[in-house]
């Protein structure tokens, strides 16, 4: 049976369902089902402690503005990207290279 918990995902900036598992050292590991990012919580926490940590995690990470999200927004705002022109001076075959004047 898969154990899940809804936790705020800092990467997605949204509440997401996370899969719960135990890390090798017995800590609580939560992986976001959407982006796969992980969050760890200390071993041996009670339900109340866990809920408090989940709430603290949301408070601490809500509103982060990632550079990735800024770049995505800019891409959405911009006109269609201008296709780079074909290289007008293709010297790879040597045809565009002038011989030095003697």
């Amino acid at each position: 049976m898969k154990l899940t918990k809804t936790i705020f995902c800092a990467n997605d900036q949204a509440e997401q369902v996370h899969d719960l598992s135990a890390s090798p050292s017995g800590e609580v590991q939560a992986n976001c089902q959407v982006c796969g990012r992980l969050i760890k919580f200390p071993a041996g926490v009670s339900r109340d402690d866990f809920d408090a940590l989940v709430a603290a995690h949301k408070d601490a990470n809500q509103g982060q503005v990632t550079v990735e999200s800024i770049e995505k927004t800019l891409a959405e705002l911009a006109d269609s990207p201008v296709k780079a022109k074909e290289d007008e001076f293709n010297f790879t075959d040597g045809s565009g290279i002038e011989e030095p004047i003697e």
């Binding site: 800092a10 990467n11 050292s25 800590e27 990012r37 969050i39 760890k40 919580f41 200390p42 071993a43 926490v45 940590l53 603290a56 995690h57 408070d59 601490a60 990470n61 509103g63 982060q64 503005v65 990632t66 550079v67 990735e68 800024i70």
Partner: peptide, 22 residues
């Protein structure tokens, strides 16, 4: 120690603008 520090609550994994830093 190598135990998860519950007092470190900010996820710094992503690159963010300094203006939204702690």
């Amino acid at each position: 120690s190598a135990a998860t520090d519950a007092n470190l609550t900010v996820d710094m994994t992503a690159v963010i603008a300094i203006a939204s830093g702690v």
